[in-house]
Computed example of a mutant assay.
Amino acid sequence: MTIQEYKSSNSKLRMSKIKLLNLKDKIDGNEMDLSLCNLTEVPVKDLAAFPKVTVLDLSCNNISSLPLEFCSLSHLVKIDISKNQLTVLPDDLGRLSNLHHLDLYNNKLTILPVSFSQLKNLKWLDLKDNPLEINLAKAAGDCLDEKQCKQCAVRVLQHMRILQDEVDKERERRLQKEKELEKKKEAKQRERETKEREARKREKAEEKERKRKEYNAHMAALAVQEQRNKRKEEKKRRNGQLAADKKAAVESASKGRRYSLIGLLWKLLFLLLLGLAGVVGVCQLAELNEETGCVPINSAVGNALSWVQEQEVDLRVRELVQEVDIRARELLQKLSSLAPQLLKSFSPTATMTDPVETVEN
């Protein structure tokens, strides 16, 4: 068993002995005397059961500290805890607001809690035979009689109030510093958030710009593709037009050739007819009608005219045939009148210098 465990077991044993004691036997009116009980701890819970007790005597024990719960015994007016082993008092000692008399003689205290300044009703204090801090010892002075003990209470309260003010100021400075640090922290946080917002804004702007460029590039590509398609369509149209023009030219040339051939054939037919008419005219009106070559021609023409006249056709047709016959005879007469000259021009005795008469219609 270690020393600490031994002390703890002894403390529990002593507390059990205290509980065995009848605290009521320790009460005399409003006073409770627990001196010389070899206590190391204060039975706070048991004391709280007697709120009418205002005077408590804990002197001549082995108490080294007071629990925090001791400060809740605010009904106490006088406390004697002299000749113990106290090294420190609880921080909330100022909660004993009704305390008038406090005897801390012959302990091991060096300082008092700052809350000691809140004991506004304290009128009597004894701090003799404690290893007090120098300034506190000067403030406490001697406490050899009633008057000095009362002055000790006043001076110590003043000293503790000064310390309290300093503590408050220090606390205020600390709080102010903490507030400033908090403000700086908040400012840095806001600055960081602002930078993050600006960064996000820039990222969004860059993303938007990138999308806009992609959109423009896409639209430009579509425009180029559309332009290419238009050029292809235009090329197809031009090729189609060229093909159509070529086809039309070929067709036109073919048609022209066809028309020129037909025209040539018509011209040849006309010349043939003209020649035939000339031959018929020569055979009918010239002195050559008795020639061997003209006899069958004259016979065929006569038979054709007779056949037409013999046919039973309309009067208008007959008139047309007669008109054609008359016009043909006139044409033949003209051709017969020109026949000698034509024959003469084509005779072997004719020269290139022989004049040719002008034909008058």
Rank of each mutant, 00 (worst) to 15 (best):
L73T: 08
Q322I: 10
A304R: 04
E319K: 11
Y6L: 14
G263L: 13
R212K: 15
E41R: 07
R155C: 04
K255H: 04
A339E: 03
P340V: 12
L122Y: 02
R95M: 12
N298I: 15
Q176P: 00
N239Q: 14
K12L: 15
R173I: 14
L20H: 09
D165Y: 04
D325G: 07
D103Y: 02
L13S: 07
H100S: 08
Q164L: 07
P90M: 10
K344S: 13
Q333T: 12
K169S: 11
N22D: 12
Q227S: 05
A153Q: 03
Q225E: 11
R202L: 14
P296R: 09
V324R: 06
L338F: 03
A49D: 07
P67V: 06
S117T: 02
L157P: 01
K108E: 09
K169E: 13
D25I: 02
S11R: 12
L332C: 10
R14P: 00
R257A: 14
S35V: 11
E198K: 15
K188N: 06
K120V: 15
K123T: 15
M1S: 10
A244T: 04
I326C: 04
Q284F: 08
F270E: 14
M1L: 09
L96S: 03
A350V: 11
P90S: 11
L144C: 05
R228E: 09
D91M: 10
D103Q: 03
A49I: 01
D354F: 05
H100A: 05
A243D: 11
F50M: 01
E191L: 14
K267W: 07
L23E: 00
P355V: 12
V44G: 03
K211S: 05
C283T: 06
L265K: 13
K230A: 12
V280A: 13
P67E: 13
C152T: 13
R327C: 08
I111E: 05
K19S: 13
R190W: 06
V114A: 04
H218Q: 11
L273Y: 08
L271Y: 08
L315V: 14
P113R: 07
K83L: 14
K267Y: 05
D142G: 04
I63W: 02
N130Y: 04
K246C: 08
L125S: 03
N121D: 10
R95G: 02
D28Y: 02
N121K: 15
K232C: 05
S254N: 10
K26N: 02
D129V: 12
N121V: 03
L47R: 03
N106H: 13
V324I: 11
E196D: 05
E196K: 15
K255S: 05
Y105F: 14
F50S: 00
I134C: 01
H159S: 04
Q148P: 01
S260I: 13
P43I: 11
E198A: 15
T353M: 09
L144P: 00
D245P: 00
N22K: 10
L288G: 02
V53W: 00
E323M: 08
T54V: 11
P340A: 11
E178M: 08
L132V: 06
D165H: 07
L144E: 07
F70L: 07
V280F: 06
